[in-house]
Design a protein around this nucleic acid. Structure first.
Lengths: 366, 366
DNA sequence: GATCGCATTGAATCGCTGA
DNA sequence: GTCAGCGATTCAATGCGAT
C-alpha cells in the first residue's frame, strides 16, 4: 500500500517544473501525502492585499482602503491558514516544512502551524553577516530572519542528517543560529534593466543547509512561493527533485533560465557522512561464534569492572548476567549503557573497546 | 495633564517593592498609564514527556514546575491575552514592553501583541554563547531565545538610546542579535540546599542591555513574572525604579535579599559586555555552502595528493574521508595536519591555499 | 601558588525495531 | 496496538581537588 502510494505520486507529480498559478489551488490539485519537504517564503507585506485570499479562495478586495490594522491581520491569518492547510495535505506523514519570515509575519505563521497540528522541531535564526543598517537610528539593525522547522505531526519520523550537519560545522553539532551572508554579487539575479530580479532572493547557502540537513537525495521538495527559484537551483545541485509554484511570469522566466544552468554535483560528492544509526546491526553473540572473543574471556570497563563472556553471547559479573548492555547498566547503576563502547578486551597488551571487533565485521559485510 | 499623571503615579505606585500575588490581578489594581517599561518573562509552556539523560547517563534537571503547565494552547492563549491586556492598560502612552520566550510560546505571544494593538519595533535574538547541547542528536542545538520589543501603539514615541547602545557595542550600531552567555557561576542564585534557586534565571547582562537601550534613569520598570529579580537588580544598579510581581514566596525572598545587596551606580557592579575580538571560527563547510568551493571539486596538496569535496564539507580521498584536517593527516601519515594551509584549489590557473577563502569570510564578518 | 584534569550543569516539546 | 531490548548521544564554563 505504501509502495503504491509512492509510485503513484512519483508518476503523477510534475517534478522539476515551475507551475503557474495560485499556490493554494495548485497544491490542492496535487495528490495527498506525496511530498517530502516544503520550503516556504511567503509574502508578508500587508500592502499586498490583492494577493491575499479568504479560506474559500475568493480574493480579498484590493481596493478597500478602509482596512484597519485588525482587518489586515485577519486577512493575513486567513491567507496563512489556507496555504498551510493545503501544504499539510500534500506532505507525506513523515514529511516536514520550513517557513521563513520576519517579525511582521513569523509569529502568525508559527501560531498557525501549531494550531494545525504541525509539530515545531526548532526555530532557526538566520543571522545575516552583512545586513542593511538602520539608517534612522530608531531601532536595532534588523540583522536576522526567523525560520521554523516543523514535522507534519507530533511523533512523526522526520529526516535529520545529524552527522552531515555536524560535519558541515567542523565536528560541532549544528546550532539553531546560522551565520550566513545575504544574497549579493553575481549570485543576485538581475533583470534586463540590471535591477534586482526579486526583492527578497534568498542565498543558496541557506537552502544548502536546509536541504542537506532535512532531506535525502531523490526526495521531493515543494516551494509554493518559488520566486526566482533558489530552492529549485539548490535542490538540483544536491540531487533532489523540486516542484515550484509561482504566479508571476517574470519570476518564472528568471527561475527557469537559472535552473537550466545549474549542474548536479557528482554522485560521490553527494554522499554525506552517514549516521551510525543506519549501520547494520551486529549481535554480540557473533563475536563469540566467530572466535573473536572466547567464552571465559574477561572484559573490563574503563573504571575497572570486569565480566566474563559466556558461550551464548551473554556476560556474567557477580549477580548480574545478561547482554553486554544490561550488565554494563547494572554495574554502573545507570538507566542504560552502550556495551559496545563500555566493554574492552586486551589486544597486544592494550585495552580496546569491543566496538572495534564489530567494525571489523561490518567492514567485511561491504 | 501629562505632568499631573506622572506625579500622581509616582506617588501611588509601590516603587521598588515585590508584590505578592497573581500578576493580572495586581496589574489591574495599579493606576493606568503609569509605567514606562514592562519586561516579562512568562512561563514558556514547555511540554516535556519523559526524562532526558546526557550521554554520560547523568540526568538533566528539566523545568517541570507546576507554574509552567498548561492544558492546551487554548488555555495558554487565554492566559497570554489576559496578562498582555492588563499590562497594556498600565503602560504610559509612550511606554514599551519586552517579552521573552522560546519557540514553544513566543509565536503565540507575538501574534497576541499584534492583535492587541501593540506595535512591534524589533524581535531580538539572544544567542547563547554556551547553550545546553542537544543530547540525542535529533535536532539543532537550541541555542537562542527570542525577545519581542513593542511600543504601546503605532506611532508612539518610545525610548531608544541609540548612542548608548552603540557605545556598548564598541562604536558599531547595535544589531537585533545579541551574543551573551547564560546565567552561571556566582551570578546564579542558589537556595539553602545549594540547588539553583530558580530554574530559568536570566543573566544580568541581558537586562542591562534592555534597560540601557529602552529606558532612562528614573523610569519605572514593571516585571510581572519577577522570579528571583534580575530585572529589579539591574534596574537598581542603573538608577531606575522597579515594581516586581511574584506569587512564589521562595522566589520573592531570594529576590529581596539579592536586590538589597545591589548598590546603585556602583561602577564595578555594572556588567560589561564581553568584547570578543578573537577571530571567529569559520567551519570549512561554510565554504561549500556558500559556493566558494563546489561539491565534487578537487583539492590538491603541495606534494600532489588530491581529495574531492563533498556536500557536507568533508573530503574523500581513496579510503580516507573526514574533515580537511583528518584527510590531510591520513594522507601524510601524520598525527595532525592544518587543512587550511595544506589544501589548495585552482584560481586563475594558480594553486591557492583554501585559507584564502577563510580570510575572505572573516573580512566580510568585520 | 599555578596548573591540570575531572566532575558538574544549563528553559529540552531529544529512538527505533522487531516480537 | 504494546513492550522490551538494543544502542546512540554533548558544548562551554565553572569549580574543585590533586599534582
Amino acid at each position: 500500500m505504501k509502495t503504491k502510494t509512492t509510485t503513484k505520486a512519483a508518476v503523477e507529480l510534475p517534478l522539476n517544473t515551475i507551475i503557474d498559478g495560485d499556490c493554494i489551488e495548485v497544491m490542492n490539485s496535487l495528490p495527498e501525502s506525496s511530498v517530502d519537504l516544503i520550503f516556504a517564503d511567503p509574502p508578508y507585506n500587508l500592502q499586498l492585499k490583492g494577493e491575499l485570499h479568504r479560506p474559500d479562495n475568493s480574493k480579498v478586495d484590493a481596493v478597500d482602503d478602509d482596512w484597519d490594522q485588525f482587518d489586515s491581520f485577519k486577512a493575513y491569518d486567513q491567507f496563512t491558514r489556507a496555504w498551510l492547510k493545503a501544504a499539510r495535505r500534500i506532505l507525506k506523514p513523515n514529511g516536514a516544512i520550513w517557513v521563513i519570515g520576519s517579525y511582521h509575519n513569523v509569529f502568525r505563521m508559527g501560531a498557525e502551524l501549531q494550531n494545525q497540528g504541525y509539530w515545531i522541531l526548532n526555530d532557526v535564526v538566520w543571522r545575516k553577516s552583512n545586513p542593511m543598517p538602520n539608517f534612522r537610528g530608531k531601532r536595532f539593525t534588523n540583522a536576522h530572519e526567523t525560520m521554523i522547522w516543523a514535522s507534519k505531526s507530533e511523533g512523526a519520523k522526520y529526516t535529520f542528517n545529524y552527522e552531515a550537519l555536524k560535519a558541515l560545522n567542523e565536528g560541532i553539532q549544528m546550532r539553531s543560529d546560522w551565520v550566513l551572508p545575504i544574497c549579493t554579487g553575481h549570485e543576485r539575479l538581475k533583470d534586463e534593466n540590471g535591477d534586482k530580479a526579486h526583492p527578497t532572493q534568498k542565498p543558496e547557502s541557506l537552502l544548502h543547509r536546509v536541504l542537506v540537513g532535512s532531506t535525502n537525495p531523490g526526495d521531493v521538495i515543494l516551494d509554493p512561493f518559488f520566486g526566482t527559484g533558489t530552492t529549485g537551483a539548490v535542490a538540483k545541485m544536491l540531487g533532489r527533485e523540486f516542484i515550484g509554484i509561482e504566479r508571476e511570469e517574470a519570476y518564472r522566466k528568471v527561475a527557469e533560465k537559472r535552473i537550466a544552468k545549474v549542474r548536479k554535483f557528482d554522485k560521490e560528492a553527494l554522499i554525506t557522512t552517514p549516521s551510525k544509526r543506519a549501520e547494520p546491526r551486529v549481535p554480540f553473540g557473533q563475536l563469540v561464534e566467530r572466535g573473536m572473543l572466547r567464552p571465559g574471556e574477561v572484559l573490563t570497563s574503563p573504571r575497572g569492572k570486569t565480566a566474563k563472556v559466556r558461550a551464548d553471547g551473554t556476560l556474567i559479573s557477580g549477580e548480574a548476567r545478561g547482554s553486554i548492555h544490561q550488565v554494563g547498566a547494572a554495574l554502573e547503576s545507570a538507566p542504560s549503557c552502550n556495551g559496545w563502547t563500555y566493554w574492552h578486551f586486551r589486544q597486544d597488551g592494550k585495552k580496546v573497546p569491543i566496538d572495534l571487533l564489530r567494525q571489523q565485521i561490518r567492514a567485511e559485510m561491504n
